[in-house]
Write a protein that binds this DNA or RNA. Structure first.
Lengths: 201, 201
DNA sequence: ATCGATTCGATGAACGTTCGTTCACTTAAT
DNA sequence: ATTAAGTGAACGAACGTTCATCGAATCGAT
């Protein structure tokens, strides 16, 4: 039969799958033990693969870390793009806070953030991956704040402070692993909403 | 003369000084290269001391890290105590924001925070050192917020969010190393003041 | 005050382990 | 037959830690 394709597995497909498996395994290891305490052997063993093969897929340890940082940055980038499309300023801000918080508060994301931040301190290439995202976050949020236009502080400064609040809170939630207390997320939104309100004096 | 004490250096004094030197050197190394990338030899070499001697002062690497975490926590503890003494609620909050921010935004403190946070994720003993401080910070700030009593969200929840904002902003300032833009610190205080203001609806 | 005895800070070579990485080799898809 | 995924032993370097050893400060006896 023509349809009887070789049962032997497609090579490009299996190698892509294996590479993905290795990345996922590495993330798990980094989250569980920390980047610093994770060796190439740990990843290979957990993935059920030889060390040599691991090096067939990634030139070295730093490249593997950079790859994961890139994936993390790409995930964040998606969130930013998704948030951007909203017309009403107030609703845009609300959605921003809710969505960005949910993203950052995920335990895996939170732990990775700490680990990668530590890594970025000594690796400019990794830092660059995220500084772009940060700028985009500020830009997106500042636009909504400016459209609402109620405070006298520059919109990008306010946006930065809102991001700090969200990230700080999300990190606290994500690192401890316990869910936020009932109403705590609403408190965050109320907090931000008030913070962006103009004073009367 | 009676006053002519032995010129030979006092032993307990020199050992205390050397221990302090080692701690300080270790902090410098940890900030410069990160805890994970700093070896015992690095610290010993930079301090101009033999490795063996380093082990005479600290039982092991983890104890040295714990010691530094303890010092860091103690420094924060001082700040908390210093802040607590203020009667007027609004002024207490303002002082809190300003003082705590200044403390966290110090580059050394900021980098150490990231490094130690990463360490604390896998070392409960270190985490405990800071969870107590966090509770005290929340308690102190919540008292001032409750005394001012304007919002409907629980005071400790608001206090937590204020801390998140301060810490997030301070980390951003401290890690990048560049001073906050003019008026940015005032923006932080204005931001917090508004966030703690009750709504009218 | 002086002198052995003792204590302890200080040294750096050495130990065993683990690390990132390489490589000769096998296996399987093209 | 060629190409590339896959293997695991092996390599050199670096790690945390230990150890025999030395020198100087302390102490008790004189």
């Amino acid at each position: 039969m023509e349809d009887d394709r070789p049962e032997r597995t497609n090579r490009v497909e299996t190698t892509r799958a294996r590479r993905a498996l290795l990345v996922e395994t590495a993330i798990t290891c980094f989250v569980d033990q920390g980047i610093a305490r994770t060796g190439m052997r740990d990843i290979a063993k957990k993935a059920g693969v030889s060390v040599g093969n691991l090096y067939n897929h990634f030139p070295g340890r730093d490249d593997l870390i950079a790859e994961i940082a890139k994936i993390d940055a790409a995930g964040l980038s998606e969130v930013v793009a998704q948030i951007a499309e909203c017309t009403d300023p107030q609703e845009a801000i609300d959605r921003f806070v809710k969505t960005y918080f949910a993203y950052c508060a995920d335990p895996v994301s939170a732990v990775l953030t700490v680990e990668i931040t530590s890594e970025a301190l000594r690796n400019p290439a990794i830092e660059d991956l995220f500084s772009g995202n940060r700028a985009m976050l500020v830009e997106t949020l500042a636009a909504a704040i400016a459209a609402q236009g109620q405070t006298k502080t520059p919109a990008d400064v306010s946006a930065g402070l809102v991001l700090d609040t969200i990230e700080g809170f999300a990190l606290r939630v994500g690192l401890t692993g316990k869910k936020p207390r009932k109403g705590e997320t609403e408190a965050l939104m109320s907090f931000v909403r008030h913070a962006l309100t103009a004073e009367e004096d």
